[in-house]
Amino acid sequence: MDKVKLKEALIALEKHHIDEAEMKYDDFLLGNLLDKTEVIDDDDQSHHRQSIEISDQLEEQAHVHLEHLETIHKISFTPKKVVEPGAVISVNGRCMIVAVSKPMFTIDGRNFIGISTNAPIYKELAGKKTGESFVFNGNTFKIESVY
């Protein structure tokens, strides 16, 4: 398993998400600025306040992805013997990478999901080795491999 390629893919995904968030933010701002040359009534001001809340949420999304990017850069993706940040694990046929929360993505035809150390399942996985089992949400899982 090429963990360098995995790290590069995670970095590329986060950069893509940052770019998307920034474009959505910029587009939103352009479409929601008040025109000071026109009469502004109470309804316009109410919509403007709502727009500010939405723009804050869009800006926050970009910051979250920037934090994810920093986290990925800091993690060592060297081979692992136990589940810890930077580990890639196979559990019941599913591959997880311990770094940041990320929905399923595919590299070289193989599906991965990203989990953070704050994920509830990580608390059950942390420190475990290949062959060990754990219980999560009432289900038993077996760690097939740790890379």
Results as ranks from 00 to 15, higher is better:
residue 26 D to W: 09
residue 56 D to F: 00
residue 106 T to E: 14
residue 52 I to G: 00
residue 140 T to W: 02
residue 22 E to L: 07
residue 139 N to K: 12
residue 142 K to W: 02
residue 135 V to M: 09
residue 56 D to H: 00
residue 29 L to I: 10
residue 3 K to R: 09
residue 144 E to V: 10
residue 131 G to N: 05
residue 98 V to F: 05
residue 74 K to R: 14
residue 118 N to V: 07
residue 146 V to D: 07
residue 63 H to D: 08
residue 137 N to T: 07
residue 68 H to N: 14
residue 94 R to V: 14
residue 94 R to A: 15
residue 125 L to D: 04
residue 7 K to R: 07
residue 75 I to Q: 05
residue 52 I to H: 01
residue 101 S to H: 12
residue 132 E to Y: 03
residue 82 V to Q: 08
residue 29 L to K: 14
residue 56 D to N: 04
residue 101 S to E: 15
residue 133 S to V: 05
residue 123 K to Y: 06
residue 134 F to P: 07
residue 77 F to V: 03
residue 35 D to I: 08
residue 131 G to S: 02
residue 28 F to E: 03
residue 1 M to G: 12
residue 49 R to I: 13
residue 146 V to F: 07
residue 27 D to H: 09
residue 83 V to D: 10
residue 48 H to P: 01
residue 80 K to F: 08
residue 111 N to V: 06
residue 7 K to M: 03
residue 11 I to S: 02
residue 85 P to M: 12
residue 39 V to S: 15
residue 89 I to S: 05
residue 136 F to R: 11
residue 130 T to L: 00
residue 91 V to M: 13
residue 80 K to N: 06
residue 115 I to V: 15
residue 25 Y to W: 13
residue 89 I to F: 06
residue 93 G to Q: 11
residue 87 A to T: 10
residue 64 V to W: 12
residue 119 A to D: 14
residue 9 A to S: 08
residue 104 M to E: 15
residue 120 P to G: 09
residue 53 E to Q: 00
residue 121 I to Q: 06
residue 51 S to R: 01
residue 63 H to G: 09
residue 109 G to K: 06
residue 77 F to W: 01
residue 1 M to A: 03
residue 85 P to S: 14
residue 62 A to R: 14
residue 17 H to M: 11
residue 126 A to K: 13
residue 141 F to R: 10
residue 15 K to S: 04
residue 104 M to W: 06
residue 125 L to C: 05
residue 39 V to E: 15
residue 5 K to Y: 00
residue 130 T to I: 01
residue 42 D to H: 04
residue 136 F to G: 12
residue 51 S to C: 02
residue 123 K to H: 07
residue 114 G to L: 05
residue 78 T to W: 01
residue 9 A to F: 05
residue 129 K to Y: 02
residue 120 P to C: 05
residue 31 G to Q: 13
residue 56 D to Y: 00
residue 67 E to G: 14
residue 13 L to T: 01
residue 30 L to A: 07
residue 34 L to W: 06
residue 66 L to W: 03
residue 130 T to N: 05
residue 101 S to A: 13
residue 144 E to L: 04
residue 116 S to F: 04
residue 57 Q to H: 10
residue 128 K to A: 03
residue 10 L to F: 02
residue 68 H to D: 13
residue 134 F to G: 11
residue 102 K to Q: 15
residue 143 I to S: 02
residue 13 L to N: 05
residue 99 A to H: 03
residue 147 Y to R: 07
residue 54 I to S: 00
residue 131 G to Q: 02
residue 116 S to C: 04
residue 123 K to P: 04
residue 64 V to S: 14
residue 43 D to G: 11
residue 52 I to V: 15
residue 1 M to K: 06
residue 105 F to W: 06
residue 114 G to A: 11
residue 78 T to H: 06
residue 29 L to V: 04
residue 144 E to A: 07
residue 26 D to M: 11
residue 53 E to I: 00
residue 123 K to C: 08
residue 90 S to C: 14
residue 40 I to H: 07
residue 53 E to F: 00
residue 107 I to W: 03
residue 99 A to M: 11
residue 100 V to S: 11
residue 141 F to C: 04
residue 47 H to V: 00
residue 102 K to M: 15
residue 23 M to D: 12
residue 16 H to L: 11
residue 82 V to E: 15
residue 117 T to S: 10
residue 110 R to W: 02
residue 39 V to F: 15
residue 70 E to T: 11
residue 60 E to G: 14
residue 40 I to P: 04
residue 113 I to S: 12
residue 3 K to W: 01
residue 110 R to D: 00
residue 68 H to K: 13
residue 147 Y to N: 15
residue 143 I to N: 03
residue 112 F to H: 07
residue 34 L to A: 12
residue 73 H to A: 10
residue 55 S to F: 00
residue 17 H to S: 11
